[in-house]
Amino acid sequence: MKILMYSTHEHERTYAEEWAKETGNQVTMEMVPLTKETVAMAKGYDGVSVQQTSRIDEEVYRALHELGIKQISTRTAGVDMFELQAAAQNGITITNVAIYSPTWRFIHHGRSPKWGSLTPCTCSETLDASTSGWTTTTTSAGRVI
């Protein structure tokens, strides 16, 4: 799987590189945010990951859809930068960070996300919200929005 990380911070690089190596996924890290000017960078990728507070314009979702992107994973707990209806209309799933921890980046699908009881998981499978509601993302365990 090829993932493009927008708005990458220096402290995230080691974790993303380690995860990519462990899972065999390709991760490209860029420092720029996802905007209508930078959305074309996602061409050829399977998904994108963001960490930004600026709003993502509706035309970005259309462009991502045209590029075949089906998921945006935010490396934040908040989702107020997203136009959730525009994302849904373009077939894009938004996932966010449900908990913060630099140590536990993944949870196993069958476990409930309780602090201190997380089990690392290296699978890259995304779960449907109708099953357990939890999904693995590029850097964290998150909830499907």
Results as ranks from 00 to 15, higher is better:
residue 85 Q to Y: 05
residue 80 D to Y: 07
residue 65 H to A: 14
residue 96 N to I: 00
residue 127 L to K: 11
residue 90 N to A: 13
residue 140 S to I: 03
residue 3 I to Q: 06
residue 11 H to E: 06
residue 92 I to G: 05
residue 107 I to E: 01
residue 127 L to A: 10
residue 100 Y to P: 00
residue 3 I to E: 09
residue 145 I to K: 06
residue 132 S to K: 04
residue 7 S to T: 13
residue 124 S to D: 13
residue 78 G to V: 07
residue 21 K to I: 14
residue 27 V to M: 01
residue 58 E to G: 15
residue 60 V to A: 13
residue 22 E to M: 08
residue 63 A to P: 01
residue 113 P to W: 09
residue 114 K to Q: 15
residue 113 P to N: 11
residue 130 S to G: 11
residue 89 Q to F: 04
residue 69 I to Y: 03
residue 36 K to V: 11
residue 96 N to R: 11
residue 45 Y to F: 15
residue 11 H to L: 10
residue 63 A to S: 12
residue 117 S to R: 09
residue 135 T to I: 03
residue 126 T to W: 00
residue 36 K to C: 04
residue 38 T to P: 02
residue 75 R to K: 05
residue 19 W to I: 15
residue 97 V to A: 10
residue 128 D to M: 03
residue 29 M to S: 02
residue 78 G to T: 12
residue 80 D to Q: 05
residue 31 M to H: 04
residue 31 M to S: 14
residue 125 E to T: 15
residue 122 T to D: 05
residue 95 T to I: 01
residue 60 V to N: 02
residue 27 V to Q: 00
residue 94 I to T: 06
residue 6 Y to R: 02
residue 89 Q to E: 15
residue 118 L to H: 07
residue 97 V to S: 05
residue 140 S to Y: 01
residue 75 R to D: 13
residue 127 L to R: 14
residue 108 H to I: 09
residue 33 P to D: 01
residue 5 M to A: 08
residue 77 A to W: 06
residue 15 Y to I: 06
residue 119 T to A: 06
residue 126 T to N: 03
residue 141 A to D: 00
residue 129 A to K: 10
residue 141 A to K: 04
residue 34 L to D: 03
residue 143 R to N: 12
residue 21 K to F: 04
residue 144 V to P: 02
residue 101 S to F: 07
residue 57 D to P: 02
residue 13 R to N: 07
residue 75 R to Q: 14
residue 60 V to H: 07
residue 14 T to F: 09
residue 26 Q to D: 13
residue 5 M to P: 03
residue 125 E to Y: 11
residue 27 V to E: 01
residue 110 G to H: 11
residue 136 T to A: 07
residue 14 T to S: 15
residue 56 I to P: 05
residue 118 L to N: 00
residue 28 T to Y: 04
residue 135 T to S: 13
residue 112 S to K: 13
residue 47 G to P: 02
residue 97 V to T: 14
residue 104 W to L: 13
residue 138 T to H: 01
residue 81 M to A: 10
residue 110 G to K: 06
residue 11 H to M: 12
residue 48 V to P: 12
residue 9 H to F: 08
residue 8 T to I: 06
residue 26 Q to S: 11
residue 118 L to I: 15
residue 139 T to Q: 02
residue 11 H to S: 12
residue 141 A to L: 14
residue 121 C to Y: 15
residue 49 S to L: 14
residue 133 G to Q: 06
residue 76 T to K: 09
residue 18 E to P: 00
residue 23 T to P: 08
residue 139 T to R: 00
residue 61 Y to P: 04
residue 41 M to R: 08
residue 105 R to E: 05
residue 35 T to I: 08
